[in-house]
Amino acid sequence: MTPFRGIALKLMSVFLFAIMASCIKAAASHVPAGQAVFFRSFFAMPVILLWLAQRGDLRTGLQVQNPMGHFWRGFVGTAAMALGFAGLGLLPLPEVTAIGYVAPLLTVVFAAMFLGEQVRLFRMSAVGLGMVGVMIVLYPRLTIFDGADPYSMATLGVMFVLGSAVFRALAQIHIRKLVQTDQTSAIVFYFSLTATLLSLLTLPLGWVIPTWQEAALLVTAGIVGGVAQIFLTTAYRFAPASVVAPFDYASIIFAIVIGYTVFGEVPTLVMLCGTSLIVLAGILIIWRERQLGLARGARQTLTPQG
Rank of each mutant, 00 (worst) to 15 (best):
Phe145Ala: 07
Gly147Lys: 13
Ala148Phe: 13
Tyr151Lys: 07
Tyr151His: 11
Ser152Pro: 07
Met153Tyr: 08
Met153Phe: 09
Ala154Pro: 07
Thr155Ile: 03
Leu156Gly: 04
Leu156Lys: 05
Val158Tyr: 01
Met159Glu: 00
Met159Ala: 04
Val161Asp: 01
Leu162Glu: 01
Leu162Gly: 01
Gly163Pro: 02
Ser164Met: 02
Ala165Pro: 01
Ala169Thr: 00
Leu170Glu: 03
Leu170Asp: 02
Gln172Asp: 01
Gln172Trp: 03
Gln172Met: 03
Ile173Trp: 01
Ile173Gln: 00
His174Ala: 09
Lys177Gly: 05
Lys177Val: 03
Leu178Asn: 01
Leu178Ser: 01
Gln180Asn: 09
Asp182Thr: 03
Thr184Asn: 08
Ser185Phe: 05
Ala186Pro: 08
Ala186Arg: 06
Ala186Glu: 07
Val188Leu: 11
Phe189Leu: 15
Tyr190Met: 13
Tyr190Gln: 10
Phe191Ala: 08
Ser192Leu: 14
Ser192Trp: 12
Leu193Asp: 12
Leu193Met: 15
Leu193Trp: 14
Leu193Phe: 15
Ala195Leu: 13
Thr196Asn: 12
Leu197Met: 15
Leu197His: 11
Ser199Ala: 15
Leu200Met: 15
Leu200Arg: 11
Leu200Tyr: 10
Thr202Cys: 08
Thr202Asp: 11
Thr202Ala: 11
Leu203Ala: 14
Pro204Glu: 03
Pro204Tyr: 05
Trp207Lys: 06
Trp207Arg: 07
Val208Ala: 12
Val208Ser: 12
Val208Asn: 12
Ile209Trp: 15
Pro210Tyr: 09
Trp212Gln: 15
Trp212Gly: 10
